[in-house]
Design a protein around this nucleic acid. Structure first.
Lengths: 223, 223
DNA sequence: CATCGACTACTAATATTTTCATAGTTCCCT
DNA sequence: AGGGAACTATGAAAATATTAGTAGTCGATG
């Protein structure tokens, strides 16, 4: 689990980092909202711990910004004693909990765990299109309710297509993203895997459309 | 769910009772620590809500007493504004959360639910699936009513699988969670333990499904 | 010091990935 | 419309990768 701590005080960041790492969370730090937003383009933390008072951009504005960008990440707010935490505003902004400084390690950890538990169960990570269901947590694909066996590459391919639905993907792109940049094999390899994925998809084989001279794309009709 | 409210003020007890019963919890009351301890010999509440300030025995002493008796019950502390809630002491005594008077119904209920949710997994003393029973308190596993011997690692593995049922777990995840982040051994170690766990599980060996290229998962059919 | 469990190395058994040859399409040009 | 170039689909075999199973060493623990 990756946790991003956003606070301008290095001391606080260090303390929080220590507690978190002690419980084997992976910790990232940002000094302010700007830095945090930047970082989040590259990394995908599972939880944010954000101080209300920060230079440039306070905690509330930061959360507002996140919400507008459509990012939906569990968030715990840190407020100094005396600062009134406006619960109504806070919870509307999707803040899951808050902790008042000074806080005990145990308290913070309890909140972190509670929030993660609460939110992770809500994310029932599934993709659903008619009778085609990808259950990411179970790592399986269902068609008409029964599991269809996919090889790892087929599964990866399908997930990547779903993630980039209706976008034409070049063979080069697919090779780089799924096989990795260090793969130097034949282009035709893709064709073979597409063939096998189509076979596995049965009645949904036509979702994968050939883009001649370019690559393939997954086409989903909107409803 | 049974909740025991320990407070010397009848008014507070009534208010809390009303909120709780409104959410269909079963409520018991005690005027002080002595009474509460007595009551707990007969009843087994799932949660305590305890005022700090009470005659005869204050909230902290009460919790200390509980802890010494080895009772381990989720507890929420009520503190009046101005009374300093000593977080360090509190959390060390196993207090899970605290609410400052005056509190809003909504806040108290949110805390109650959060604490119950957080702790209920720990209270769930048994896991039952058909003839497979994990008795967490007795730290043993039964199949068809008779105990099957498991090595520590096998037991840990099984519990972790049960906790994450129907979720595909990568070897890395298993290694990190069960062996710890400081383990730098061979991936294949897992395979061996899986094999042994399967053997131990006898007729339930197939519950553990390999997810090729990924890891393993415990599959439980819903009923 | 004897036993048990954890771990590693090795081998066998499977499953997957890749390559490659061939057949089939599409598209463009005349 | 016909021919050819370029591209894609498919099937099967070869090459790899992954997992299961076996055996044995190491080290902790009673």
């Amino acid at each position: 689990m990756k946790i991003l701590v956003v606070d301008d005080e290095k001391l606080i960041r260090n303390v929080v980092r220590e507690y978190l790492e002690n419980e084997s969370y992976e910790v990232m730090e940002a000094e302010d909202g700007m830095q945090a937003l930047e970082l989040m383009d590259r990394e995908t933390p599972d939880l944010l711990i954000v101080d209300i008072m920060m230079p440039h951009m306070d905690g509330f504005s930061f959360c507002k910004e996140l919400k507008q960008e459509g990012r939906n990440i569990p968030t715990i707010m840190l407020s100094a004693r005396g600062e009134e935490f406006d619960k109504l505003t806070g919870f509307e902004l999707g803040i899951d909990d808050y902790v008042t400084k000074p806080f005990s390690p145990k308290e913070l950890m309890a909140r972190v765990k509670a929030v993660l538990k609460r939110t992770s169960s809500e994310i029932g990570k599934k993709f659903i299109y008619e009778d085609l269901i990808i259950d990411y947590t179970a790592h399986q694909v269902l068609i008409d309710g029964s599991e269809i066996p996919l090889t790892p590459k087929e599964y990866d391919l399908l997930c990547y297509f779903v993630k980039n639905k209706n976008i034409a993907l070049s063979r080069e792109n697919l090779l780089n993203q799924i096989w990795g940049y260090d793969f130097f094999g034949d282009d035709r390899t893709i064709d073979t895997h597409i063939k096998m994925l189509r076979n596995s998809l049965g009645k949904y084989r036509d979702l994968i459309v050939t883009v001649r001279g370019m690559g393939y794309k997954l086409v989903l009709k909107e409803k």
